[in-house]
Computed example of a mutant assay.
Amino acid sequence: MNIVVDYGNSSAKVGIFDQRTLKEKHVFRSEVELKDFLQNFPADHFIISSVNTDAKTVSEWTSAKKKFILRHTLPLPVQNLYATPHTLGVDRIAGVCGAQILYPATNCLVIDAGTCITYDFLDSEARYHGGSISPGLKMRFEAMHTFTARLPLVQVTENPPLTGNSTETCMQSGAIHGLTEEIDGIIRRYSEKFSGLVVILCGGDTAFFENRLKASIFAVPELVLSGLNSILLYNVSR
């Protein structure tokens, strides 16, 4: 069995894989819970990606025979053409590695809808080029409230009107419709440039956006975990 850990800003997602098959998924919001789980789960191989926690410390909690930490120096099953690989978010590279497993020899656009929206392009020859980053949905609401004197902090709503008739509904319309149009527009531009493009949506806001977009997409919430597992298998076999 393989254990893969995607340690984000607020929680750790853990996937248990039998080769390429995801058998279990767990979410831990405290280090104590994660440590207890890792110390008591027998595994052959382990990999972690972390954005703000000491990955080396977490790796010491497991007795797996082979352990890997996702850094820019770790060999990948794709060719990384990013100009500054040391600055590349580990979740972004894991996402495109997941896309490569699901759709080999295919032009892929991975959209991770989370705190930020990230767009990452992998070509049909398994070459990762980069992409773009923009503010995510909740960040847009928080920014309008933080950087203005009078705009309130409003909540995300499922069906905002196109034409708001109050400050709250105007903000909801602008943030939600604006971001939806942004995502559709980015997809359209990539589709015009790259033939046979497959678009994969993942991240915490996947469910919110998957039925709002005009473009054809594949929603794969566990894409990053699958990508981490593919990186793990690639390094185990070397």
Score class of each variant (00 low, 15 high):
residue 1 M to C: 07
residue 2 N to M: 06
residue 6 D to R: 04
residue 9 N to V: 07
residue 12 A to Y: 00
residue 13 K to F: 00
residue 13 K to P: 03
residue 13 K to C: 05
residue 13 K to L: 08
residue 14 V to L: 08
residue 15 G to C: 05
residue 18 D to R: 14
residue 21 T to K: 15
residue 24 E to L: 10
residue 25 K to R: 15
residue 29 R to I: 13
residue 29 R to D: 13
residue 31 E to A: 12
residue 33 E to D: 15
residue 36 D to C: 11
residue 38 L to S: 06
residue 41 F to V: 14
residue 42 P to K: 07
residue 44 D to F: 09
residue 45 H to C: 14
residue 46 F to H: 05
residue 47 I to G: 06
residue 49 S to R: 04
residue 51 V to M: 07
residue 53 T to P: 00
residue 54 D to L: 04
residue 55 A to M: 06
residue 58 V to R: 00
residue 58 V to T: 01
residue 60 E to A: 04
residue 60 E to K: 01
residue 62 T to H: 00
residue 63 S to F: 08
residue 64 A to W: 03
residue 67 K to Q: 09
residue 73 T to Q: 15
residue 75 P to V: 09
residue 77 P to E: 13
residue 78 V to G: 06
residue 81 L to H: 12
residue 83 A to G: 11
residue 89 G to H: 08
residue 89 G to S: 10
residue 92 R to K: 12
residue 93 I to F: 04
residue 93 I to G: 08
residue 94 A to F: 06
residue 94 A to Q: 09
residue 97 C to E: 12
residue 97 C to K: 06
residue 97 C to S: 09
residue 98 G to Q: 13
residue 98 G to W: 11
residue 100 Q to I: 11
residue 100 Q to E: 15
residue 101 I to S: 14
residue 104 P to V: 11
residue 104 P to G: 10
residue 107 N to G: 10
residue 107 N to V: 13
residue 108 C to E: 11
residue 109 L to M: 12
residue 110 V to K: 09
residue 110 V to H: 09
residue 111 I to C: 07
residue 112 D to I: 10
residue 112 D to Y: 05
residue 116 C to T: 13
residue 117 I to P: 01
residue 118 T to H: 05
residue 119 Y to W: 09
residue 121 F to T: 11
residue 122 L to Y: 03
residue 125 E to F: 08
residue 127 R to I: 11
residue 127 R to V: 14
residue 127 R to Y: 07
residue 132 S to R: 07
residue 132 S to C: 10
residue 134 S to Y: 07
residue 137 L to R: 03
residue 139 M to T: 14
residue 140 R to Y: 04
residue 140 R to I: 12
residue 141 F to D: 02
residue 142 E to P: 00
residue 142 E to I: 12
residue 144 M to R: 03
residue 144 M to K: 06
residue 146 T to K: 13
residue 148 T to H: 03
residue 149 A to N: 11
residue 151 L to T: 06
residue 153 L to A: 08
residue 154 V to P: 01
residue 162 L to N: 05
residue 163 T to G: 08
residue 163 T to P: 00
residue 164 G to L: 03
residue 168 E to M: 11
residue 169 T to H: 01
residue 172 Q to L: 02
residue 176 I to M: 03
residue 176 I to D: 04
residue 177 H to T: 03
residue 181 E to A: 15
residue 184 D to N: 08
residue 184 D to R: 00
residue 184 D to H: 02
residue 189 R to W: 03
residue 190 Y to N: 02
residue 193 K to G: 02
residue 193 K to Y: 06
residue 194 F to S: 10
residue 195 S to N: 13
residue 196 G to E: 10
residue 196 G to K: 00
residue 198 V to I: 13
residue 199 V to Y: 04
residue 199 V to M: 06
residue 200 I to W: 00
residue 203 G to S: 02
residue 203 G to T: 01
residue 206 T to K: 00
residue 206 T to P: 03
residue 207 A to P: 00
residue 210 E to H: 06
residue 211 N to V: 05
residue 213 L to Y: 00
residue 214 K to D: 12
residue 217 I to C: 01
residue 218 F to E: 15
residue 218 F to W: 10
residue 220 V to M: 06
residue 226 S to A: 14
residue 226 S to Q: 14
residue 227 G to V: 08
residue 228 L to Y: 01
residue 231 I to R: 03
residue 232 L to C: 07
residue 234 Y to L: 05
residue 237 S to M: 13
residue 237 S to P: 04
